[in-house]
Amino acid sequence: MAERRSGIDYYGVAVLLILWELAPRLGWIDSQFFPAPSAIFAEGAKLWADGTLVLHITVSLKRTFLGLLGATALAVPLGFVLGGWFPRFTRFLSPLLNLFGQINAFSLFPLFVLFFGIGELAKFSIIFWSCLWPILFTTIAGVQGVEPLFIKLARSMGGGRGALLVKVLIPGALPSIFTGVRIGATVAFLMLIAAEMIGASSGLGWLVHNSSVNYIIPRLYLAALLIALLGTMLNYSLHWLENHLIHWKTS
């Protein structure tokens, strides 16, 4: 958030970690259900050493990025074409697009499994589907929200369609598109974990599911923490990218 955070603010994290470490050791809580951070860390070190951890992380990240990239590659150009060149057609389509955007992506998962089987394609398609709508909607809104004065000015200088697109519409719509990509990435990661829990043989979601089935509680915690960390990092890196690409924005 906008507030500046100092070292003091992270005391909370430290205190929590210490309490969590002590509680199972002192018998306050059942260490079977709440393993201490050290136990989780040990489990992590073990999986790291035999390489499985890296494998699951890369698999999950790869799936997320593939879905996100695929959705972006389709939604952004489509949004420009719809929002910029065919405003009437967009108006005509908008109830349908809204309908698709509102449908709970999870309820479609069985359908996707039905169509594409339980393999990679089903996972790709669910992520693709759930990223597609936020990116498409924000792109259309971004293109249509470009200040008309800018367009008027560029046209008054005799700028053609190409110049208008490259020099005015794309930079003008970029902040809005980025919001869509960020929302998409968050949703994608969430979907991925669920999809991996339902049907996969690798990935962090599978790790959670597998640990719970085999009752390996520290590994379950490890996977859950890793997913949270990865989600946070994904979010931060997109923020970072946004700030570097759109540095001209006022705070």
């Binding site: 603010d9 929590l16 669920a194 962090l204 996977a223 859950a224 949270a228």
Partner: peptide
């Protein structure tokens, strides 16, 4: 201010990864 970072992190924890834990509990 002190608890916000903890809460933020907890808020980031993917609910699906906790679901098996809830089932166990």
């Amino acid at each position: 201010r002190i608890v916000t970072p903890v809460l933020r992190f907890l808020g980031q924890v993917n609910p699906f990864s906790l679901f098996p834990l809830f089932i166990i509990l």
